[in-house]
Design a protein around this nucleic acid. Structure first.
Lengths: 159, 159
DNA sequence: TTTGAAACCTGCCGATA
DNA sequence: TATCGGCAGGTTTCAAA
Protein backbone atom coordinates (compact mmCIF):
# COMPACT_ATOMS: atom_id res chain seq x y z
CA UNK A 1 0.00 0.00 0.00
CA UNK A 2 2.73 2.51 0.85
CA UNK A 3 4.22 1.80 -2.56
CA UNK A 4 5.30 5.40 -3.05
CA UNK A 5 8.85 5.00 -1.81
CA UNK A 6 10.89 7.37 -3.93
CA UNK A 7 14.18 6.14 -5.28
CA UNK A 8 17.02 8.42 -6.32
CA UNK A 9 15.66 8.87 -9.83
CA UNK A 10 12.17 9.85 -8.64
CA UNK A 11 13.77 12.30 -6.24
CA UNK A 12 15.70 13.89 -9.07
CA UNK A 13 12.61 14.12 -11.27
CA UNK A 14 10.76 15.89 -8.48
CA UNK A 15 13.60 18.30 -7.83
CA UNK A 16 13.88 19.27 -11.48
CA UNK A 17 10.13 19.68 -12.04
CA UNK A 18 9.78 21.73 -8.87
CA UNK A 19 12.39 24.08 -10.29
CA UNK A 20 10.87 24.16 -13.78
CA UNK A 21 7.42 22.70 -14.22
CA UNK A 22 7.46 23.20 -17.97
CA UNK A 23 10.67 21.30 -18.60
CA UNK A 24 10.15 18.99 -21.57
CA UNK A 25 10.35 15.28 -21.01
CA UNK A 26 13.29 15.21 -23.36
CA UNK A 27 15.35 17.65 -21.33
CA UNK A 28 14.23 16.02 -18.10
CA UNK A 29 15.31 12.59 -19.24
CA UNK A 30 18.62 14.01 -20.49
CA UNK A 31 19.41 15.58 -17.14
CA UNK A 32 18.67 12.51 -15.09
CA UNK A 33 20.48 10.20 -17.50
CA UNK A 34 17.52 8.10 -18.60
CA UNK A 35 15.84 7.75 -21.95
CA UNK A 36 12.52 9.56 -22.52
CA UNK A 37 10.17 6.58 -22.24
CA UNK A 38 10.95 5.33 -18.74
CA UNK A 39 11.34 8.91 -17.58
CA UNK A 40 7.84 9.81 -18.73
CA UNK A 41 6.47 6.63 -17.18
CA UNK A 42 7.88 7.71 -13.82
CA UNK A 43 6.49 11.21 -14.14
CA UNK A 44 3.03 9.83 -14.91
CA UNK A 45 3.31 7.51 -11.94
CA UNK A 46 4.23 10.38 -9.63
CA UNK A 47 1.27 12.35 -10.95
CA UNK A 48 -1.10 9.40 -10.59
CA UNK A 49 -0.25 8.69 -6.97
CA UNK A 50 -0.48 12.37 -6.07
CA UNK A 51 3.17 13.00 -5.26
CA UNK A 52 3.17 15.63 -7.99
CA UNK A 53 -0.11 17.32 -7.12
CA UNK A 54 -0.26 19.90 -9.91
CA UNK A 55 1.63 22.22 -12.20
CA UNK A 56 1.18 25.97 -11.82
CA UNK A 57 2.50 29.32 -12.99
CA UNK A 58 3.68 31.55 -10.14
CA UNK A 59 2.70 35.19 -10.45
CA UNK A 60 4.63 38.00 -8.74
CA UNK A 61 2.09 39.65 -6.39
CA UNK A 62 3.82 43.05 -6.62
CA UNK A 63 3.46 43.04 -10.39
CA UNK A 64 -0.32 42.78 -10.12
CA UNK A 65 -0.64 45.37 -7.37
CA UNK A 66 -0.85 43.02 -4.39
CA UNK A 67 1.77 44.46 -2.08
CA UNK A 68 0.30 43.88 1.37
CA UNK A 69 0.78 40.55 3.17
CA UNK A 70 -0.78 40.11 6.59
CA UNK A 71 -0.84 37.19 8.99
CA UNK A 72 -4.05 36.95 10.95
CA UNK A 73 -4.51 34.72 13.97
CA UNK A 74 -8.08 33.86 14.75
CA UNK A 75 -9.64 32.53 17.95
CA UNK A 76 -13.11 30.99 17.86
CA UNK A 77 -15.43 31.06 20.84
CA UNK A 78 -16.05 27.31 20.52
CA UNK A 79 -13.78 24.64 19.06
CA UNK A 80 -16.12 21.74 18.32
CA UNK A 81 -16.19 20.16 14.86
CA UNK A 82 -19.25 22.05 13.75
CA UNK A 83 -17.72 25.46 14.46
CA UNK A 84 -14.37 24.57 12.91
CA UNK A 85 -16.11 23.32 9.80
CA UNK A 86 -18.21 26.43 9.53
CA UNK A 87 -15.18 28.69 9.82
CA UNK A 88 -13.19 26.73 7.25
CA UNK A 89 -16.00 26.84 4.73
CA UNK A 90 -16.28 30.59 5.19
CA UNK A 91 -12.57 31.34 4.70
CA UNK A 92 -12.40 29.02 1.70
CA UNK A 93 -14.73 31.50 0.01
CA UNK A 94 -12.48 34.54 0.67
CA UNK A 95 -10.15 35.15 -2.28
CA UNK A 96 -7.71 37.17 -0.15
CA UNK A 97 -6.87 34.11 1.98
CA UNK A 98 -3.73 32.53 0.51
CA UNK A 99 -3.27 29.92 3.17
CA UNK A 100 -4.82 28.85 6.41
CA UNK A 101 -3.71 26.39 9.10
CA UNK A 102 -5.45 24.98 12.13
CA UNK A 103 -2.96 25.69 14.90
CA UNK A 104 -1.80 24.69 18.36
CA UNK A 105 -1.49 27.36 21.00
CA UNK A 106 -3.32 30.61 21.64
CA UNK A 107 -4.96 30.94 18.26
CA UNK A 108 -7.15 28.39 16.52
CA UNK A 109 -6.28 29.44 12.98
CA UNK A 110 -3.52 31.35 11.24
CA UNK A 111 -4.26 32.92 7.85
CA UNK A 112 -1.99 34.55 5.30
CA UNK A 113 -3.82 37.39 3.58
CA UNK A 114 -2.77 39.05 0.33
CA UNK A 115 -4.34 42.40 -0.63
CA UNK A 116 -3.43 45.56 -2.50
CA UNK A 117 -3.72 48.11 0.31
CA UNK A 118 -4.39 48.64 3.99
CA UNK A 119 -7.80 49.98 3.05
CA UNK A 120 -8.59 46.70 1.37
CA UNK A 121 -7.27 44.80 4.37
CA UNK A 122 -9.45 46.75 6.76
CA UNK A 123 -12.42 46.05 4.52
CA UNK A 124 -11.61 42.33 4.57
CA UNK A 125 -11.22 42.31 8.32
CA UNK A 126 -14.27 44.34 9.30
CA UNK A 127 -16.78 43.44 6.66
CA UNK A 128 -15.93 39.81 6.11
CA UNK A 129 -13.63 37.95 8.50
CA UNK A 130 -15.05 39.29 11.76
CA UNK A 131 -18.57 38.68 10.48
CA UNK A 132 -17.96 34.94 10.29
CA UNK A 133 -19.95 33.04 12.87
CA UNK A 134 -17.96 32.08 15.95
CA UNK A 135 -14.95 34.38 15.49
CA UNK A 136 -14.07 35.61 18.96
CA UNK A 137 -10.73 37.31 18.53
CA UNK A 138 -8.46 38.43 15.68
CA UNK A 139 -4.79 39.46 15.87
CA UNK A 140 -2.91 40.84 12.87
CA UNK A 141 0.80 41.13 12.06
CA UNK A 142 1.96 42.67 8.81
CA UNK A 143 4.83 41.55 6.66
CA UNK A 144 7.22 44.43 6.02
CA UNK A 145 8.97 42.46 3.30
CA UNK A 146 9.04 38.89 1.99
CA UNK A 147 12.49 37.38 2.47
CA UNK A 148 11.98 33.83 1.23
CA UNK A 149 9.11 32.23 -0.66
CA UNK A 150 9.58 28.61 -1.75
CA UNK A 151 7.26 26.01 -3.18
CA UNK A 152 9.82 23.20 -3.53
CA UNK A 153 9.82 20.81 -0.60
CA UNK A 154 13.15 20.15 1.13
CA UNK A 155 15.18 16.98 0.76
CA UNK A 156 16.10 16.12 4.32
CA UNK A 157 18.40 13.44 5.65
CA UNK A 158 16.64 11.14 8.12
CA UNK A 159 18.11 11.62 11.58
CA UNK B 1 7.35 52.72 -17.21
CA UNK B 2 4.43 51.10 -15.36
CA UNK B 3 3.52 49.46 -18.64
CA UNK B 4 2.33 46.29 -16.95
CA UNK B 5 -1.31 47.23 -16.71
CA UNK B 6 -3.16 43.97 -17.24
CA UNK B 7 -6.21 44.01 -19.44
CA UNK B 8 -8.99 41.45 -19.26
CA UNK B 9 -7.20 39.03 -21.60
CA UNK B 10 -3.93 39.12 -19.65
CA UNK B 11 -5.90 38.53 -16.50
CA UNK B 12 -7.53 35.48 -18.03
CA UNK B 13 -4.19 34.12 -19.24
CA UNK B 14 -2.78 34.47 -15.75
CA UNK B 15 -5.77 32.81 -14.14
CA UNK B 16 -5.62 29.83 -16.48
CA UNK B 17 -1.86 29.34 -16.18
CA UNK B 18 -2.01 29.65 -12.40
CA UNK B 19 -4.52 26.79 -12.45
CA UNK B 20 -2.56 24.70 -14.95
CA UNK B 21 0.98 25.75 -15.72
CA UNK B 22 1.39 23.10 -18.39
CA UNK B 23 -1.61 24.09 -20.47
CA UNK B 24 -0.59 24.17 -24.12
CA UNK B 25 -0.72 27.45 -25.96
CA UNK B 26 -3.30 25.90 -28.22
CA UNK B 27 -5.71 25.10 -25.41
CA UNK B 28 -4.99 28.41 -23.71
CA UNK B 29 -5.80 30.43 -26.82
CA UNK B 30 -8.95 28.38 -27.36
CA UNK B 31 -10.21 29.10 -23.87
CA UNK B 32 -9.64 32.83 -24.01
CA UNK B 33 -11.04 33.13 -27.51
CA UNK B 34 -7.91 34.30 -29.26
CA UNK B 35 -5.81 32.69 -31.95
CA UNK B 36 -2.54 31.04 -30.86
CA UNK B 37 -0.08 33.66 -32.09
CA UNK B 38 -1.26 36.76 -30.21
CA UNK B 39 -1.91 34.56 -27.20
CA UNK B 40 1.66 33.32 -27.15
CA UNK B 41 2.94 36.87 -27.61
CA UNK B 42 1.07 37.93 -24.49
CA UNK B 43 2.35 34.98 -22.49
CA UNK B 44 5.94 35.77 -23.49
CA UNK B 45 5.41 39.41 -22.56
CA UNK B 46 4.06 38.44 -19.14
CA UNK B 47 7.08 36.19 -18.63
CA UNK B 48 9.52 38.87 -19.82
CA UNK B 49 8.25 41.59 -17.50
CA UNK B 50 8.21 39.21 -14.53
CA UNK B 51 4.47 39.04 -13.99
CA UNK B 52 4.70 35.31 -14.54
CA UNK B 53 7.76 34.65 -12.43
CA UNK B 54 8.15 30.91 -13.03
CA UNK B 55 6.47 27.58 -13.68
CA UNK B 56 6.70 24.86 -11.06
CA UNK B 57 5.41 21.44 -10.10
CA UNK B 58 3.78 21.35 -6.67
CA UNK B 59 4.63 18.29 -4.58
CA UNK B 60 2.38 17.02 -1.79
CA UNK B 61 4.53 17.25 1.38
CA UNK B 62 2.72 14.33 3.04
CA UNK B 63 3.55 12.07 0.12
CA UNK B 64 7.26 12.61 0.65
CA UNK B 65 7.11 12.22 4.41
CA UNK B 66 7.06 15.91 5.37
CA UNK B 67 4.12 16.07 7.73
CA UNK B 68 5.16 18.69 10.26
CA UNK B 69 4.61 22.40 9.61
CA UNK B 70 5.76 24.89 12.22
CA UNK B 71 5.63 28.68 12.33
CA UNK B 72 8.58 30.19 14.12
CA UNK B 73 8.74 33.82 15.20
CA UNK B 74 12.23 35.13 15.75
CA UNK B 75 13.42 38.19 17.62
CA UNK B 76 16.94 39.49 17.06
CA UNK B 77 18.88 41.36 19.74
CA UNK B 78 19.68 44.16 17.27
CA UNK B 79 17.74 45.28 14.22
CA UNK B 80 20.26 47.26 12.18
CA UNK B 81 20.82 46.42 8.52
CA UNK B 82 23.90 44.38 9.18
CA UNK B 83 22.18 42.02 11.61
CA UNK B 84 19.08 41.65 9.45
CA UNK B 85 21.24 40.83 6.44
CA UNK B 86 23.24 38.30 8.41
CA UNK B 87 20.10 36.54 9.61
CA UNK B 88 18.52 36.46 6.16
CA UNK B 89 21.62 34.97 4.61
CA UNK B 90 21.70 32.28 7.28
CA UNK B 91 18.05 31.22 6.88
CA UNK B 92 18.35 31.24 3.10
CA UNK B 93 20.74 28.34 3.57
CA UNK B 94 18.33 26.22 5.63
CA UNK B 95 16.35 23.85 3.41
CA UNK B 96 13.57 23.44 6.02
CA UNK B 97 12.61 27.12 5.72
CA UNK B 98 9.77 27.35 3.21
CA UNK B 99 9.08 31.01 3.65
CA UNK B 100 10.25 33.91 5.74
CA UNK B 101 8.91 37.44 6.22
CA UNK B 102 10.32 40.49 7.97
CA UNK B 103 7.47 41.51 10.28
CA UNK B 104 5.93 44.34 12.23
CA UNK B 105 5.18 43.82 15.89
CA UNK B 106 6.79 41.68 18.56
CA UNK B 107 8.82 39.44 16.31
CA UNK B 108 11.31 40.51 13.69
CA UNK B 109 10.85 37.48 11.44
CA UNK B 110 8.26 34.79 10.89
CA UNK B 111 9.35 31.52 9.28
CA UNK B 112 7.34 28.59 7.98
CA UNK B 113 9.25 25.37 8.58
CA UNK B 114 8.54 22.03 6.90
CA UNK B 115 10.05 18.86 8.38
CA UNK B 116 9.26 15.18 8.71
CA UNK B 117 9.10 14.87 12.49
CA UNK B 118 9.28 16.70 15.78
CA UNK B 119 12.71 15.21 16.29
CA UNK B 120 13.85 16.82 13.08
CA UNK B 121 12.24 20.10 14.11
CA UNK B 122 14.04 20.11 17.43
CA UNK B 123 17.28 19.42 15.63
CA UNK B 124 16.64 22.36 13.31
CA UNK B 125 15.79 24.66 16.20
CA UNK B 126 18.57 23.76 18.58
CA UNK B 127 21.45 22.96 16.28
CA UNK B 128 20.83 25.48 13.54
CA UNK B 129 18.33 28.32 14.01
CA UNK B 130 19.28 29.30 17.55
CA UNK B 131 22.96 29.14 16.60
CA UNK B 132 22.54 31.98 14.11
CA UNK B 133 24.26 35.15 15.26
CA UNK B 134 21.94 37.68 16.86
CA UNK B 135 18.94 35.44 17.49
CA UNK B 136 17.57 36.53 20.87
CA UNK B 137 14.23 34.79 21.12
CA UNK B 138 12.30 32.08 19.30
CA UNK B 139 8.59 31.22 19.62
CA UNK B 140 7.03 28.22 17.86
CA UNK B 141 3.45 27.35 16.93
CA UNK B 142 2.64 24.10 15.18
CA UNK B 143 0.10 23.57 12.44
CA UNK B 144 -2.32 20.78 13.38
CA UNK B 145 -3.61 20.63 9.83
CA UNK B 146 -3.36 22.66 6.65
CA UNK B 147 -6.78 24.00 5.66
CA UNK B 148 -5.98 26.09 2.58
CA UNK B 149 -2.83 26.33 0.49
CA UNK B 150 -3.00 28.52 -2.62
CA UNK B 151 -0.40 29.81 -5.01
CA UNK B 152 -2.77 31.71 -7.32
CA UNK B 153 -3.03 35.38 -6.44
CA UNK B 154 -6.54 36.81 -5.91
CA UNK B 155 -8.38 39.03 -8.37
CA UNK B 156 -9.71 41.84 -6.20
CA UNK B 157 -12.03 44.67 -7.08
CA UNK B 158 -10.51 48.07 -6.30
CA UNK B 159 -12.43 49.70 -3.46
C1' DT C 1 -4.09 34.53 -39.76
C1' DT C 2 -2.14 30.81 -42.01
C1' DT C 3 1.53 27.70 -42.85
C1' DG C 4 5.31 24.46 -42.53
C1' DA C 5 9.49 22.74 -40.47
C1' DA C 6 11.38 21.35 -36.18
C1' DA C 7 10.72 19.68 -31.74
C1' DC C 8 8.08 17.09 -28.64
C1' DC C 9 4.90 13.55 -26.63
C1' DT C 10 3.71 8.92 -25.89
C1' DG C 11 2.17 4.00 -26.90
C1' DC C 12 4.28 -0.29 -28.33
C1' DC C 13 7.75 -3.82 -28.72
C1' DG C 14 11.91 -6.30 -27.92
C1' DA C 15 15.99 -6.35 -24.82
C1' DT C 16 17.97 -6.55 -20.36
C1' DA C 17 19.18 -7.43 -15.57
C1' DT D 1 9.02 -9.66 -13.32
C1' DA D 2 9.90 -5.09 -13.60
C1' DT D 3 12.25 -1.58 -15.85
C1' DC D 4 14.80 0.03 -19.70
C1' DG D 5 15.75 1.91 -24.69
C1' DG D 6 14.34 2.67 -29.53
C1' DC D 7 11.05 3.38 -32.95
C1' DA D 8 6.90 5.64 -35.09
C1' DG D 9 2.66 8.28 -35.39
C1' DG D 10 0.35 12.17 -34.12
C1' DT D 11 0.49 16.68 -31.83
C1' DT D 12 2.42 21.14 -30.51
C1' DT D 13 5.35 25.00 -30.97
C1' DC D 14 6.86 29.12 -33.13
C1' DA D 15 8.69 32.13 -36.49
C1' DA D 16 8.17 33.73 -41.08
C1' DA D 17 5.16 34.56 -44.91
Amino acid sequence: MPENALDAIDRKIIDLLQADGRMSNQELSDRIGLSPSPCLRRVRQLEANGTIARYVALVDPDKVGLSVTAFVRVRLDQQDDRHLQEFETAVAGFPEVMDCYLMTGEADYQLRILVSSLTQFEDFLRRRLTKVNGVANVTTSFALRPVIYKTAVPTLQPL
